[in-house]
Design a protein around this nucleic acid. Structure first.
Length: 433
RNA sequence: GCCGGGGUAGCUCAGCUAGGUAGAGCGCCGGGCUGUUAACCCGGUGGUCGGGGGUUCGAGUCCCCUCCCCGGCGCCA
């Protein structure tokens, strides 16, 4: 643009007395009569604009008076340092134009969660949610950087699929030209198919679960970071997972301190997570620890949300739980050769009560064994034909994992609900907006 | 699917346990104000009490049915 617009962030770096043009939305509006204060919001932050009869033409003082909350405006003026302005710098207006008026913006502060969710399309303009989208983007970028540096190939598995990865989970059904099809709940099987050529693959894609979960950790549509690698066992996969989490967290601490502070997230609790390895405990030990805390639980019981929360009290970093009883885990996981009752499976739990953010395992790579594991769960091996084929033609030891992006962000940012880590959360029967 | 809480003004809520035909704060509108930080001060506007049925002289309030939302559990990432 010829004259050039300056972002609210850049304005603060200019010499006082600079004449600049800015544009954005009215975040706060305070009319004192012969003086009007506007706080302008743009993608980078906020800046106070002042219309004063002393230096602003009357016409533009009027315009400033009419620039109601969330109107989009273009303004021109001279920068000035002033300790009374938020951020210490303000723009003294010489011109102001309302581009798109906003009459009676529905969000004024003090609204309840239901109303805000009904107005999510407007609520996402808030500074806190904006900070979240910026942190989220940095996480996405760090995931790519990490896998790139480890020689992984990013691949694009389908979202429309024929069958479930795990028999129990509920799928969203769609009509595929008369044939039943489902929205994917995990790309794992497709990633497994791709390792036979690319060896190390990963993807970042939505997964869909039609389970009617009503908790702060569940979305019906969530972003799933999944990776799969040939020639790697459970231990190697856990190493990859902890390094991924440590790296991504480090990048967020490097680049998004301002946003974390806007979300009132203290960074100290995140510091320990930058160092690997993370602690590992076996399922068996988790049970013993819980019994030591007075929980009525025995070997063979699943770990519920309360149990996970209790275990996270013992650690100040994410930590692994490994070697779950086979019957608690999925059919495609490989039993431990030293103790076939237990699976070579791991969960990574985030501290501060957040709980499970990653689930992974070494996969069953033997055709006959996998066939039997499918049958013993009561599933039909015919439904898994192509998946079984992978073990028939050049099978290879391999492992993989899935990370719930929103749950990870929930921990890093300290928000207490996954819905606030994604712009338009799909949960609890809510589909609008 | 289960347990708990809740639908009263545009928003947040009080009123319900002792039935008598609706209230506050904020917003909004108008006026005032030359440094505001969710500005402040004065005045005004505002509701078929989620929907349906019942009891009653009379129901926001009691009873039954139903819809919706929130918090939690299970399931999982």
């Amino acid at each position: 643009m010829a004259a050039g617009y300056v972002s609210t962030r850049m304005v603060k770096e200019l010499e006082p007395g600079s004449r600049v043009k800015v544009r954005g939305w009215v975040y706060r509006h305070r009319d004192l009569g012969r003086k009007v204060f506007i706080v302008l919001r743009d993608a980078d932050g906020i800046l106070q604009l002042v219309a004063d009869e002393a230096y602003t033409p009357q016409k533009y003082v009027e315009e400033a008076r009419n620039a109601s909350i969330e109107s989009s405006i273009i303004a021109e003026g001279v920068t000035a340092r002033d300790p009374r302005a938020p951020g210490g710098v303000e723009l003294r207006l010489e011109r102001l134009e309302i581009v798109g008026p906003s009459v009676d913006f529905p969000i004024k502060g003090g609204e309840g969660i239901d109303y805000l969710l009904e107005n999510r399309h407007l609520w996402i303009r808030s500074r806190k949610l904006t900070a979240m989208w910026r942190i989220r983007q940095t996480a996405f970028k760090a995931f790519r950087e990490f896998f790139e540096s480890r020689g992984f190939w990013e691949v694009s598995p389908p979202m429309l699929t024929q069958a479930a990865v795990e028999g129990g989970a509920t799928l969203f059904k769609v009509d595929f030209f008369g044939k039943p099809a489902y929205l994917t709940q995990s790309s794992q099987f497709y990633l497994e198919a791709l390792i036979f050529s690319l060896e190390r693959v990963w993807t970042l894609a939505p997964s869909f679960r039609a389970e009617r979960s009503r908790t702060r950790r569940h979305l019906y549509e969530y972003w799933h970071l999944e990776a799969e690698e040939a020639w790697v066992g459970m231990e190697g996969e856990m190493k990859l997972v902890e390094e991924l989490v440590a790296y991504t967290t480090k990048r967020i601490l490097e680049e998004r301190l301002e946003e974390l502070s806007l979300l009132k997230r203290k960074t100290e609790p995140l510091e320990p997570a930058l160092k690997t390895p993370y602690p590992r405990i076996r399922y068996e030990e988790a049970i013993r620890r819980l019994q030591g805390k007075g929980v009525k639980i025995e070997y063979g019981d699943d770990l519920g949300a309360d149990e996970e929360r209790l275990l996270t009290e013992d650690f100040d970093t994410p930590f692994f739980i490994t070697h779950f009883p086979m019957e608690l885990k999925s059919f495609y996981m490989k039993p431990d050769p030293h103790n076939p009752r237990e699976a070579l499976a791991f969960d990574l739990l985030a501290p501060e009560g957040v709980g499970e953010i990653v689930g992974g395992s070494e996969r069953q790579d033997d055709y006959q064994a996998l066939y039997k594991q499918i049958e013993s769960r009561g599933y039909n091996p015919e439904d898994y034909q192509w998946y079984l084929d992978l073990r028939k033609y050049g099978s290879v030891p391999h492992s993989g994992f899935g990370l719930g992006v929103e749950r990870y962000l929930m921990w890093v940012t300290g928000v207490n609900h996954v819905r606030d880590t994604v712009p338009f959360p799909r949960f609890r029967d809510r589909i609008y907006p």
